[in-house]
Amino acid sequence: MKRKDIVTGILVLLLIASISGFLLAQTFRVAKPRIEKQMKIEEEKLNREIFPEGNDFRADNFKGIKCTSVYDGQDAFIGRIFNLTAPGYGGNILVKAGIDSESRITGIRILEHKETPGLGSRITEASFLDQFRNRDSSTLFLKKDSPRGNIDAITGATISSRAVTDSVRKLQEQINDTDGETP
């Protein structure tokens, strides 16, 4: 290979790489605010589904746990939304749960999971998640785990159902344990 060939090769590569870099930077500049906006809208929508009475959602920190504090139309505090991690069957399940000031569940959603499609993945369905609504978060158990259980596990997906149920109860226990301070 002649020296001239090497130089032109490097120049062409450099040129193409810088054009590509420039284009990508522009795309990123345009796309980034939109992506952030979309994420915000998504988050807001989710918060409203979990906490239908809520009006204002503010990032907060409660006893060392990151959460979102929820306020109603009169700016009065009515509860909190927590992000939980539950060890499921195929990996961690990310759960978002709303708990009002009397420690009742206002709503619960699954953000992410790696459960088996068609079995464990049914934890995202309303028929499972609606069972949680209005129950005291410290008394959540699967019916097959405890005589005072109140949640029906999904057929063929006990581990996934248990992970979600237990993670919410354990959160409440953790909150109760830290101290008796009223929220």
Binding site: T27, F28, V30, A31, R34, I35, Q38, M39, E42
Partner: peptide, 8 residues
């Protein structure tokens, strides 16, 4: 990036 922005 376009998909992330328009169809998350």
């Amino acid at each position: 990036y376009s998909l992330a922005a328009f169809s998350p």
